[in-house]
C-alpha cells in the first residue's frame, strides 16, 4: 500500500508546484486551483474516452488549465480586482463548466480505455503492477519538475520571481507586470490541471467535486515541506514540494487507517488540514521568534561580558 501513497503524493506534488508558483513565487493567493484541478481531470477523462490518446489528452488538460489561469489573470488585471477574489470568481464559474465538460454528470468513470495506469504495468512488466505505477509516475513527475526548474532559471523565470518580491522593480525594468501575471498564473493552473488529469487516470474516474479544498491542501504540503530544510535554490525548493506532498498524503493515509481509533472520520479531514496549515504557520512563527530571542540573549550577554572585562 505504501507505493500507493507515493504515487498519490507524486501526482499531488505537480499540483502543489502549481500552487507554489502562485502563492510563493508570484505572492498572489490564487484560489482558481480548486476549479482548475477538476477541469484538468474532467478534460483529461473526456478526451481519453473520446479516443484522443493519453498524451494529447493530457496536453489538452494542461492547455485548459492555462486558460483557467488566464481567466483569473484577466479579471485581476483588467478589472483591478484583488487576485484572491478573481480566483474565487473563476473557481465558482468553473464548477458549472466542469459539469458541462463531464456531460452534466458529477462523475465519469474511465473504463475500458487506455490510461497511464494501464500502460505503466505493461511498460514496466518486470515489476509488480503497483511498483510499475510508481516508477512511471516518478519518471513523469521528474521530467515535469526538471522542465519547471529549467524554466525558473531562465531570464523570464527569474523575472517572475522578481515580480512576486517587488512589482516596482519589474516596471522599472520595462516589463509589463500584467503580462508576467498571465504567464505565471497560466503556468500555475496548467500544472494544476495536468495533475488533475493524472489523478483522474489513477483513481479511474473524473469527479466535478475533485477540487474542493485543494488550495488549502497544497498549502499544507508546501508548509510541511518547508519544515524539512531551508533553501532559496529552485531545484531544492521543488524537491521540498515533492517531499511535502508525499508527507501530506502519508498523513492522510494514516488518518484514514488509524483515525477511527481516536474517532476521526474522513469527514474531519478538511478541518484537520486547515488546522495543519494554521499550526505550521504558528510553528514557523514561534521558531522565528525564538531565534530572535536567542540572538537578543547572545547580544545581551556579549554586552555584559564587555562590561565585566
Amino acid at each position: 500500500m505504501i507505493e500507493g501513497i507515493f504515487v498519490e503524493g507524486l501526482i499531488f506534488s505537480i499540483m502543489t508546484l502549481g500552487i507554489l508558483i502562485s502563492y510563493r513565487i508570484l505572492d498572489l493567493a490564487d484560489l482558481t486551483c480548486d476549479g482548475s484541478v477538476a477541469a484538468g481531470a474532467a478534460t483529461g477523462a473526456m478526451c481519453i474516452i473520446a479516443g484522443w490518446g493519453i498524451v494529447l489528452s493530457m496536453v489538452t488538460s494542461f492547455v485548459v488549465g492555462v486558460l483557467c489561469g488566464l481567466c483569473t489573470a484577466v479579471i485581476h488585471n483588467k478589472l483591478k480586482i484583488p487576485g484572491l477574489l478573481a480566483g474565487i470568481l473563476t473557481m465558482t464559474m468553473l464548477y458549472s463548466i466542469n459539469l458541462r465538460i463531464l456531460g452534466n454528470k458529477a462523475n465519469v468513470p474511465l473504463v475500458k480505455v487506455r490510461t497511464l495506469y494501464r500502460v505503466f504495468p505493461k511498460a514496466f512488466s518486470f515489476l509488480p503492477s503497483s511498483f510499475a505505477a510508481l516508477l512511471g509516475t516518478f519518471i513523469l513527475v521528474f521530467i515535469i519538475a526538471a522542465i519547471l526548474v529549467a524554466f525558473f532559471k531562465t531570464d523570464l523565470g527569474t523575472s517572475l520571481g522578481a515580480l512576486g518580491s517587488n512589482e516596482q522593480v519589474i516596471i522599472s525594468l520595462g516589463m509589463d507586470p500584467a503580462v508576467l501575471k498571465y504567464i505565471g498564473l497560466g503556468l500555475s493552473n496548467g500544472l494544476i490541471a495536468l495533475s488533475g488529469a493524472m489523478l483522474a487516470q489513477y483513481q479511474g474516474f473524473a469527479d466535478a467535486n475533485l477540487g474542493q479544498g485543494m488550495a488549502v491542501q497544497g498549502l499544507a504540503a508546501i508548509m510541511l515541506g518547508e519544515f524539512l530544510f531551508k533553501t532559496n535554490r529552485i531545484e531544492l525548493i521543488t524537491l521540498r514540494v515533492a517531499l511535502g506532498s508525499i508527507a501530506y498524503k502519508a498523513l492522510m493515509f494514516l488518518g484514514r487507517k488509524y483515525g477511527h481509533i481516536v474517532g476521526i472520520t474522513p469527514n474531519d479531514f478538511k478541518l484537520l488540514t486547515g488546522l495543519l496549515v494554521i499550526s505550521s504557520m504558528l510553528i514557523a512563527f514561534t521558531r522565528q521568534k525564538s531565534a530572535e530571542d536567542a540572538a537578543k540573549k547572545k547580544a545581551l550577554s556579549k554586552i555584559k561580558e564587555a562590561h565585566n572585562a
Binding site: T154, D155, L156, T158, S159, N166, N232
Partner: peptide, 29 residues
Amino acid sequence: TRGTSGSMSIQDNMMLSMSKGMKGLKYSM
C-alpha cells in the same frame, strides 16, 4: 527597498537589469 528585489540574489538582480523589456527563455548568467 524599492529599487531591488530583496528576496533575490545580487547577481539575479543585476542579470535582470542588463536590458530593459520582457525577458526571454535564455540563460544570461
